[in-house]
Design a protein around this nucleic acid. Structure first.
Lengths: 341, 341
DNA sequence: CTGAAAGCGCTAACAG
DNA sequence: CTGTTAGCGCTTTCAG
């Protein structure tokens, strides 16, 4: 393995000078610089990040731990993260916890050992002891897509309660009265908040009800699975509107609703609203009404807060940025003649 | 920062023993072990990966560099990668090159400096000098989704030429004669191969033609953009079938085709075939015929080859695993009465 | 079974 | 401007 030592020997300088060439080129005279750089490329020298980090105590990569890379919502947030990180000269790696606390924990442990420059975390459950550990090791953490209960850790989020209320209210406005909320697992704050918001809106509408049909995860497959059941509910008059905790689920539910021996019609028999407004929502068989979150902005804001962390003391208050969601109405919930209107 | 030294002091042993507790617990007497472990948890000690790697020379994370995390195809491959890596006790991080050679290069450089345990690479362009550099530093590399031209680097791929031929032949069988291939950038081997396969099939069909409508990237947005143009071509009789280089593009094209002042009908006016068979393809307005690749298997096989690398000498031949694609026919290309049948 | 000591590759004083 | 040097935290012989 070629190291500074080899480069130094080749260029006829000391290792200190090689280090200077790499880290503070302006400290070095032009011709020495050139000679060393030549040696570096001739030898194919590549600095060892582990050694540098050990000595300098700092890394230049930040990690983004997501609930599900397969969910376009997160990849959109990731783009915002990447753009902002690039500007700050940071590399970002993505780790996928797949909605499993264990996987999340093991990723966090790994990043803790690596002492990365920062961790952006879309948490599975409210209680994750490792974020404290991370911070104790000087690794800044910012929570993404969740307002942190703990004021000592920064967060960027979208107001999911309002989002849920927005969706439910819209459905009620369309004349629906038997809402079904599809989503899970119940540990996920996003799911809980959206349901809470919807429940609140329904409570304010006399005669309306909302039933929770739980799922194991927020995926297309889960949506299809549970959609069968929802179709039955629609047929038996127990349901005239579905609010899905995210678009993946909504798309899956829609597929199940529209297929099989006796499909139901959307929005006529049942109205459908999703959440996230991923690009596929608009491209579905029946374009899906959805609650939009500012995804890229969420990501870049998270990086901004992360960078700001280094200027903060451990006991300083952290910022909790909260964005407002926006309802995007499409055919899946547009009823010809809203009875209530 | 708490280090082995602190743990050793706390437990009343030497640092060597602490190291043994962590790495070879069976070398240590039971009571010493317990004492040290107690000290570790009381102090909240977390080993420093940089130091360990510097000394031991090995990391335990592998990196998967993808063209586009936003593309469900890659996230599905990633799941296969994660599952296989988990079994081998490896952590995987994902890096997104977003179809940019620069970003790809900078990620590879980063991983080279970090001396990760391995790199799985879905390459943007054929020529990537950094894979040689990586390997020179003892970092095994396997190419994903591309047959490597260089027999010295392992690869797992799906036969894209056959896939392209499959798609085109199917379209011709449906009676289409004016094919349009939508895809780009032209540097991408996947795109080139799929086009080549399609072109070959068209050449064998007297009277049929194929036109290449290039795109900048393989995204939904690009599909929508270029779809406007394709719609015109359909209207003017220059096109009766579209073969998109991937499903994202196909979905975008479909949206453009079906919207606007005078939409065209699918498959009546124009048949549509995509590539990858991502789950959204089946959920589109008109379910999209697609060429399916064994995604998860691709990922797990790649990890398998990566693990095998360590047993190979630098000059040994590498394996090139190639899977066969499969056509999944859906409504978007199913014509009521295929004139040629 | 445990301790002492060397050194992985690099950076950051510091002295010249 | 350049060279020397002392570790960063850890693993790993090698003695005891």
């Amino acid at each position: 393995m070629v190291s500074v030592k080899d480069v130094a020997a080749r260029a006829g300088v000391s290792i200190g000078t090689v280090s200077n060439v790499i880290n503070r080129p302006d400290y070095v005279r032009a011709d020495t610089l050139a000679r060393v750089q030549a040696a570096i490329s001739e030898l194919g020298y590549v600095p060892n990040a582990a050694a540098r980090q050990l000595r300098a105590g700092q890394s230049t990569t930040i990690a983004f731990v997501v609930l599900d890379v397969g969910n376009p919502f997160f990849t959109d947030v990731a783009e915002g993260v990447e753009d902002a990180a690039l500007e700050a000269g940071l590399t970002v790696v993505i780790a996928n916890s797949r909605e499993s606390v264990n996987r999340e924990t093991s990723h966090l442990q790994q990043f803790e050992r690596q002492r990365v420059a920062g961790v952006l975390l879309a948490q599975t459950s409210r209680h994750q002891p490792h974020v404290a550990a991370l911070r104790a090791h000087g690794v800044p953490v910012v929570l993404v897509d969740r307002r942190s209960s703990d004021s000592s850790v920064a967060s960027v989020a979208v107001d999911d309660t309002t989002g849920g209320a927005l969706a439910a209210r819209h459905l009620l406005d369309q004349g629906c009265e038997r809402l079904v909320f599809v989503g899970g697992p119940s540990g996920l704050t996003q799911v809980e908040d959206r349901l809470a918001g919807a429940t609140g809106a329904v409570a304010a509408a006399p005669g309306a009800t909302i039933t929770h049909v739980p799922t194991q995860a927020l995926t297309l497959d889960d949506g299809m699975r549970v959609g069968e059941r929802v179709r039955e509910m629609v047929r038996t008059g127990q349901c005239d509107a579905v609010f899905a905790a995210n678009d993946l689920l909504a798309i899956g539910v829609q597929q199940a609703l529209l297929s099989g021996p006796d499909p139901v019609s959307i929005p006529h028999d049942v109205a459908l609203v999703g959440y996230d407004d991923i690009s596929f929502a608009a491209a579905a068989v029946v374009p899906i009404t959805s609650v939009r979150q500012p995804r890229a902005v969420l990501g870049s804001k998270a990086v901004e807060l992360l960078l700001r962390e280094s200027t903060l003391g451990p006991d300083d208050e952290r910022e909790h940025v909260e964005f407002q969601p926006e309802l995007v109405v499409r055919d899946s919930s547009r009823r010809a003649t809203p009875p209530r209107a």
